[in-house]
């Protein structure tokens, strides 16, 4: 973990209630896809944990959903403003455990960390394919960015207003063969994917956090191998250790 000041380069709307925030600063503490940063906002006591969507040198991209006053405040910030980040948080995904044909499943705000994951898997010569689930057409984002990487992408919307109607699990049967599964999204989605995907995999969890670096025990969950702090020992858990 490091505490660093970053400068906003861009803060643009990607879909209804979804924004992409590009920052420049010292990204040295971020070593794996699936890690997150915890950013301080003036007027709010707790930091906001946001997963890393992309990383290129000193350029960091975060994609976030405006869900309350804090993220609304962040949405109003402009190019040139500074943000205080705790960076390099969480364990991140271990790409080494994946076979050559990994499946990446993202639900809503769980999609962003899969972008850097897909890039890393491609760099390792693997062929990631995506299933992305959203509530409705207006909330669909990142689909084209994944296609631009050269990944096959299946999109589902719960109300059928865009692409296939249904949930991500409805697309599991028609996404082609896969030998490993990475998933990030709300817990009901993770649980459904856990039950339906036939392979081993890694699942990234969300939680309300106090500190984000393992000190307060505010986000502890049970696993088959003892209590784990989602912020520090996670947010990524191996399929074999998850206790629902």
């Amino acid at each position: 973990m490091e505490k660093r000041l970053f400068t906003i380069e861009n803060n643009e709307k990607l879909a209804e209630t979804v924004r992409g925030l590009t920052l420049t600063g010292d990204t040295g503490a971020l070593v794996r896809p699936g890690q997150f940063v915890n950013l301080a906002l003036e007027g709010f006591y707790l930091r906001r944990p946001i997963s890393v969507c992309d990383l290129e040198g000193d350029k960091l991209t975060l994609v976030y959903k405006t869900v309350g006053k804090g993220t609304e405040k962040l949405a109003a910030m402009k190019k040139g403003e500074r943000l205080d980040l705790l960076t390099g948080l969480g364990n991140g995904f271990d790409t080494g455990k994946s076979g050559p044909r990994p499946l990446l499943v993202g639900g809503g705000a769980g999609a962003p960390p899969l972008y850097l994951l897909a890039k890393r898997l491609l760099e390792e010569g693997k062929s990631p394919r995506l299933i992305l689930g959203f509530k409705t057409a207006r909330e669909v984002f990142l689909e084209n960015a994944f296609r631009a990487l050269g990944c096959a992408v299946l999109v589902t919307t719960a109300d059928g207003s865009y692409a296939a109607k249904g949930f991500v699990t409805d697309a599991l049967d028609r996404c082609g063969a896969y030998d490993y599964c990475f998933a990030c999204g709300p817990e009901p989605m993770l649980r459904a994917v856990y039950t339906r995907c036939g392979t081993d995999g890694q699942f990234s969890f969300e939680a309300r956090m106090g500190c984000g670096f393992g000190a307060c025990m505010g986000c502890t969950c049970r696993t088959k191998y003892g209590h784990k702090r989602i912020c520090r020992d996670g947010p990524v858990l191996e399929k074999g250790e998850i206790v629902w």
Binding site: Y45, L46, A207, R208, C216, G218, C219, T220
Partner: peptide
């Protein structure tokens, strides 16, 4: 059980 954390003005609940 979780959630164990909430925010308040200039403070947090645990």
């Amino acid at each position: 059980p979780l959630p164990r954390i909430a925010e308040g003005p200039e403070g947090l609940l645990n």
